[in-house]
Amino acid sequence: MTIPTLTSKDAHFDYVLRLGDDALILAQRLGEWCGHAPALETDLSLANIALDLIGQATMFLGYAGELEGKGNDADKLAFHRDVNQFRNCLLVEQPNGDFGRTIARQYIFSTWQYLLYQQLARSTDPRLAEIAAKALKETTYHAELAAEWVVRLGDGTAESHERVKDGFEWCWRFVDELFSVQPLDPSIVTSGVAVDTATLRAAFDSALATTFAEATLPLPKFPRPVLGGRKGHHSEHLGHLLSDMQFLPRAYPDAVW
């Protein structure tokens, strides 16, 4: 029996999978708002973000499939893996809750993703650099839009203030995972392929402080973090999400449209 050893190639694949799964799972969550958002205009805003993220996921997962070398394309990776094979962070699989919680989740994620893509656009892996540079413009818009809404809900009515505050309360325990979990093999960070996300934390905290001051929201005391998404240890919510997302291609494997 041979014991499989972890190589930097595996870590590279795993890393690109993380990037793709973050975008894919959040896109699916945002898609759940379609037809249900508080106003037609916000329906479109959220769907637009979702579509941008699906585009990013398609590029990352397509590349991940190439790195894996088993003939899997982006669709195969998206629709034919089970919960424990997904590498997304726990934040993106969290249920939408109300509009306040969705905006809180989006603000945290897009602010982080914006900082990440800024660095990733300088990756020594030209494929990753290219995808990140293209996606950065989209993500800049997502982060700005989410920040605008955080300010309006926080500095809005007493009810909107409470709701967006509750939304952030739900999300805080998932923030550390974004910054503290490093790639499987540190060599892909030192070689400049992957971003050391710990270095993004100061800029994130500073953005948060600026937005929250304007939104009249209290800065958080971060609770004990919940980790595990990057290892495939997910919350119960991801399975339900996948059953929606994967039903059609699994029930009708040759379906095209």
């Binding site: 205009e41 479109l44 805003s45 605008e148 809404w149 309006r152």
Partner: peptide
């Protein structure tokens, strides 16, 4: 578009009419 203020109206206009 409907929007609470001008800044958000611009965002909504962008998301609705310049896709």
């Amino acid at each position: 578009v409907h929007a609470p203020d001008g800044e958000i109206a611009l965002r909504h206009a962008r998301d609705t009419y310049t896709r």
